[in-house]
Write a protein that binds this DNA or RNA. Structure first.
Lengths: 112, 112
DNA sequence: TATATTTGAAACCAAAAGGTTTCATATTAT
DNA sequence: ATAATATGAAACCTTTTGGTTTCAAATATA
């Protein structure tokens, strides 16, 4: 069974789970309460996320708290960034080069 | 059938295809020659990529040249970037805050 | 202690994914 | 005109995916 970050984030439910635990750790029941599929289904999704390192499960009594390990998304980020030049390089006139810079500033502003 | 960019790039063969046509347009046969699965299988992958806008097919005589539309990866980039703070925010001392800024500069430098 | 809660795992199922071979059609080359 | 090339699409098959229900085990609570 393939188990990599790209495949892990392909499923919309798993992306939602990641968004949910990005802010704070949650136990498995709390996460599954936010969906209308069964706990078992959510548990399987979380296991997949854990298996490719996107979250870490920490036992605490009878509960398991899941902590996001979002830095693993760097693999995706790196893969995408290697292609940025190919879609930004189209603009090769000075005019468009300036537009490109502007849009980059916007993007960087958004990051923080 | 789900058909979005995240699902499209989940398959390693499709990621390879994107890498192949990022540099220059190729017709379907040329692409499929680089893999050891059938032309029909590669064709299906390329159709999926086309359906979610990651490549455009342009007929030219009896051939179809496939041009990368890598800017569609922005959707993935945006999704990942919204979480960057969560893995970089761990460093909250002034010292580490400065390091964070540096690494951002490096990243922006890399982008062009 | 008896009961409720939280989780892990198994057995099972339908649909989707990824692959194959085969055939039809449109273009190009001989 | 005939043969070769490039593609699109259908029919079919196997494995994977995402879901279910059920049961067992560990921990907490009344």
């Amino acid at each position: 069974m393939r188990r990599d970050v790209f495949q892990a984030i392909a499923d919309p439910t798993r992306r939602e789970i990641l968004g949910m635990i990005a802010h704070k750790s949650l136990n498995i029941n709390s996460v599954s309460e936010n969906f209308d599929v069964s706990r078992a289904a959510i548990y399987k999704h979380m296991k997949i996320l854990a298996e490719c390192g996107l979250l870490e499960i920490k036992q605490q009594g009878r509960e398991r708290f899941c902590e996001g390990r979002l830095e693993r998304l760097n693999e995706v980020s790196d893969w995408v960034e290697q292609y940025r030049q190919f879609w930004e390089a189209r603009f090769d006139s000075l005019d468009n080069y300036l537009k490109e810079l502007q849009s980059k500033e916007k993007k960087n502003g958004k990051k923080k």
